[in-house]
Design a protein around this nucleic acid. Structure first.
Length: 189
DNA sequence: CATGGGATTGACT
DNA sequence: GTCAATCCCATGC
């Protein structure tokens, strides 16, 4: 069962931490979230910092929606829109531990180790086949769905660190990783 | 309308 | 360690 909008309509840091251990599904493929980052309109690394534009419209919209955008002209990056509508905030899904459909992921990603299939935000969208056209779609009804993990209450132990690949607000420790998981992207915290 | 900069990755030195 | 690929879109004239 997927989460309701109330799960996403909370402070983005809480959602980012709680998403570790949850499962992303897309077209029958699935993986467990092992790494996330939080972004909020109050800090300049967030796309929403500049206010509402055609690009950031999704970020300011309903929580529980996918924000998918193109990075460096090449990769699609998957985010979960958070906080109440009107607040620009989202959780970037940075890495998954593959669960279902590993062979199909390998067909898209090439002959790499399982640890490298989804160990980065651009890698996991390629492995799952998530595209730009899915920007603005529901994470509750699909095609991309996030649901509770099978690991029981509370999820796995989480370690926090600084966000990766940004040039502004670099000191905020808004990156969350599953402790000791080999599917987390480099550098490991 | 022209320009410049990325929430990255993989190949190469 | 360095570096190019590649394109959307925010910004400024």
């Amino acid at each position: 069962m997927s989460f309701g909008t109330e799960f996403y309509a909370r402070p983005v840091l809480e959602v980012a931490r709680d998403l570790i251990g949850c499962v992303v599904e897309h077209h029958g493929l699935a993986g467990t979230i092992v790494e996330t980052e939080a972004y909020h309109e109050s800090e300049p690394a967030c796309h929403a910092f500049v206010g509402v534009t055609p690009r950031t419209r999704t970020l300011f919209g309903e929580p529980g929606v996918a924000y998918v955008y193109r990075s460096y002209g090449i990769h699609a990056l998957l985010n979960a829109v958070c906080e109440p509508a009107g607040v620009g905030a989202a959780v970037l899904i940075r890495a998954l531990e593959p669960l279902v459909g590993i062979e199909e992921m390998r067909e898209r990603r090439g002959r790499v180790r399982v640890q490298d299939l989804c160990s980065g935000p651009g890698k996991l969208t390629q492995a799952l086949g998530v595209e730009l056209a899915e920007n603005g779609t529901s994470l509750i009804d699909g095609p991309v769905v996030i649901r509770r993990g099978d690991g029981g209450q509370g999820g796995p132990p989480v370690v926090e660190g600084t966000r990766i690949g940004i040039t502004k607000a670099v000191d905020l420790r808004w990156r969350f990783c599953a402790v000791g998981n080999s599917h987390v992207s480099r550098p490991r915290p």
